[in-house]
Amino acid sequence: MNTAVAAVRTTVRDPAFRWGLKDMLATSLGIGAWGLVTGVAMVKTGLSAPMAIFMSLVVYAGSAQLAVLPLMAVGAPLWVVWLTASCVNLRFIIFSSMWRNYFHPLPRRQRLAVGYFSGDVIFVAFMKRFPQQEPRPEQVPYFWGAASLNWLCWQVPTITGILLANTVPLSWGLGFAGVLALLGVLLSMLFDRASWIAAAVAATAAIAAFALPLKLNILVAIAAAVTAGLLIEAADRHLRRKPQVLLVPADGALPPAERERVEQGDVPLREERHP
């Protein structure tokens, strides 16, 4: 116990822990509003307060929770609910493959904790802070700084919304506030071409499939966005790895700058020697 307390104290005192807190402040208001709306929505859908709190603490996946609530409200089959939640969370497979490059030296228990506390906004902030995919001492305290604030900004408003759901009038327009909060969080996560195109594909697919029963347009939009994102990233990797021809004199050597690019793996070069 003393060892665990000492480890937590060391992590909290690390400057990188404060970096994580600072980087999450920009989205904390949107996360809180999103959590409040989700808490109210869970109770309005028909969940009891204890079950809603249990779902919030155990599932801890705002996108999946919001995606399945309309399905639960209309009495969708359980397989549709599970499939929708699984599709929404498919992105965490990609996240975990990226986290592995940073956290693979950690014990399994700590890696499982990272998996539970990780989230979209944390992932984006972490990758911006540490673009080089290699373990560094400050990465763990940074992650816990960001994760602790993100967890509190989600759970406290969510539980507040659950407990006060029956006293919150619909005239407050929390549904629209939730949409605005989600939009703000979404825009903060669109940082490259693949994410922008995936978002556009998701919106188009959701509108095109709006007539499907049981709100299956959500499932269609998720599948289309994930597919588009993966295809774009695969195409980008292929273009980056496309060999470039470099003509080198027969008695010469590869220029140092180009040799460094090859060693770093930035661009594979095909060396052709000519007399």
Rank of each mutant, 00 (worst) to 15 (best):
V8K: 10
R9S: 13
T10I: 10
T10R: 15
V12E: 03
R13T: 12
W19Y: 09
W19N: 10
G20K: 07
L21W: 12
L21Q: 02
D23Y: 06
S28I: 12
A33S: 14
V37S: 14
V37R: 07
V37A: 15
T38G: 13
A41N: 09
G46C: 11
P50D: 13
A61Q: 02
G62M: 03
V68H: 11
A85W: 07
A85V: 06
V88I: 12
V88M: 05
I93D: 02
I94E: 03
R100W: 00
R100M: 01
P105W: 07
P105I: 02
Q110H: 05
R111G: 07
A113N: 12
V114L: 06
G115N: 05
D120F: 01
I122Q: 13
I122A: 11
M127R: 08
M127L: 08
P131K: 09
E138F: 04
Q139T: 05
F143E: 05
W151P: 00
L152V: 15
I159S: 09
A165V: 00
S171M: 06
L174F: 03
A177L: 11
A177H: 00
V179I: 14
L180Y: 02
G184M: 08
M189E: 11
L190E: 14
L190T: 15
F191D: 12
D192I: 10
R193H: 13
S195R: 11
A199K: 14
V201T: 06
A202R: 05
T204E: 09
A205Q: 03
A205R: 13
A211C: 06
P213R: 15
L219P: 01
L219N: 06
A225W: 05
L231A: 14
A235G: 12
D236I: 08
R237E: 10
H238S: 12
K242L: 11
L246T: 01
L246S: 04
V248E: 05
G252K: 13
A253F: 07
P256M: 06
E258G: 03
E258H: 14
D266G: 13
D266H: 15
P268C: 03
P268T: 04
E272T: 15
H274M: 04
P275Y: 00
